[in-house]
């Protein structure tokens, strides 16, 4: 069981949380986005083995989204952070 540090509520058990994927930014304007770029945004993932930055949601708690660094090999959890307005991903 992971102990996940919600930036708003503090550490809680993993069953309160929902993993939200790799942070991505939607390409705009839609009229100028090619099929390849859209597929890159919608489907292609780095799928990192090791330390990675992920989106998480405290779905069973405060309901807030935040980013967290976690190692996908060891499951070690590092720091979490509130999401600032604007771009969150590559």
């Amino acid at each position: 069981m992971l102990s996940i540090p919600c930036p708003f509520c503090g550490p809680r058990g993993e069953h309160e949380f929902q993993w939200g994927g790799e942070p991505v930014t939607r390409p705009v304007p839609a009229s100028e986005v090619s099929d390849a770029r859209w597929a890159n945004y919608l489907y292609l993932r780095t799928n990192t083995k090791g330390r990675d930055r992920e989106l998480w949601c405290h779905a069973g708690g405060c309901g807030q989204w935040f980013t967290m660094e976690r190692d996908t090999m060891t499951h070690e959890v590092f720091e979490s952070a509130q999401i600032s307005l604007g771009r969150i991903g590559a």
Binding site: L2, K49, G50
Partner: peptide, 13 residues
């Protein structure tokens, strides 16, 4: 399991 992993072990929940 509920989140991505490269560890060949499952989590308890």
């Amino acid at each position: 399991d509920l989140y991505p992993s490269y560890a060949q072990r499952g989590n308890l929940p």
